[in-house]
């Protein structure tokens, strides 16, 4: 199948530090790709390069039939179709939950107030927060905030969703509600690229797991293979260290 998103040889440096060595990543429509690896391994950088929040220093990224790393591409246009969910939620504190979800619908999609509201409420419904539509982020729990973050991305009806450690900032007891929303998205065949440290979840939902270390993709494959029979010593080392902490 032709990939919906394809990154070829993308790299990213911060000063003299190489956050991401030239890497390739293809994502097929409906596929769930999970990026795992120790912190500082370049997972988030790779993810953030995909919607050019971090513009890669080299390489090219194709989204649908368009090369989006070329000069003169309208990135605002591209980003409408790529949803992003952040580790720190990044909700707008001065707006209600519904306001957070409808801002881009109003300003980017130019929907009328009523249409934006209808779509916004549907997105909040989907993450189980329709009742809290009038609450400000400060009055929501972390798990609820992140679900609003998901609804905000979902409302724009994206072709693909990027999740940057969506549960890392949450109290352990709140992780489940966010993961179950993401499971539902997978059941709906949403294309997703997920950076996470939740290995159980990765095993459950991933079509493909990508292990990264020191800014490079070390190995990738279906979860059953990668988690049980990794071929690379560094993958084995990472996984066994995780098991020790269990």
């Amino acid at each position: 199948m032709t990939p919906i998103l394809s990154a070829q040889g993308i790299s990213r440096h911060f000063g003299s530090i190489t956050a991401l060595s030239p890497s390739d990543l293809d994502v097929a429509p409906g596929e769930v790709v999970v990026l795992i690896g120790p912190s500082g391994s370049g997972k988030s950088t790779l993810l953030r390069c995909l919607n050019l929040l971090e513009p890669p220093d080299s390489g090219e990224i194709r989204f649908r039939d368009q090369c989006i790393t070329e000069q003169g591409v309208n990135l605002d246009q591209v980003r409408r179709s790529i949803g992003m969910v952040f580790q720190q939620f990044n909700l707008y504190p001065h707006m209600t939950a519904l306001g957070n979800v409808t801002l881009a619908l109003r300003r980017v999609h130019r929907l009328s107030r009523e249409d934006a509201r209808t779509r916004g409420m549907a997105a909040l419904e989907e993450v189980g927060l329709a009742k809290q539509h009038d609450a400000h982020p400060g009055n929501l729990s972390g798990g609820q905030q992140q679900r609003v973050g998901i609804a905000r991305a979902l409302a724009l009806d994206p072709d693909i969703m990027l999740f940057d450690e969506p549960t890392s900032a949450l109290d352990p007891e709140l992780v489940g509600e966010v993961l179950s929303v993401m499971r539902r998205l997978r059941d709906r065949k949403m294309t997703m690229v997920i950076v996470t440290h939740e290995m159980g979840f990765a095993r459950d939902v991933a079509d493909r797991v990508v292990f990264m270390n020191e800014g490079a993709i070390i190995e990738q494959g279906p979860p059953e293979t990668l988690f049980t029979a990794p071929t690379q010593p560094r993958t084995r080392e990472f996984l066994s260290r995780l098991m020790e902490h269990r």
């Binding site: 605002d76 409408r80 992003m84 707008y92 724009l156």
Partner: peptide, 21 residues
């Protein structure tokens, strides 16, 4: 900075992100 990123990631342009967020 995350507020900027959230705005831009949803397709708002620089000025819209500045003014609304």
């Amino acid at each position: 900075r995350g507020q900027w990123e959230a705005g831009r990631a949803t397709g708002l342009n620089f000025f819209q992100t500045l003014v609304h967020i």
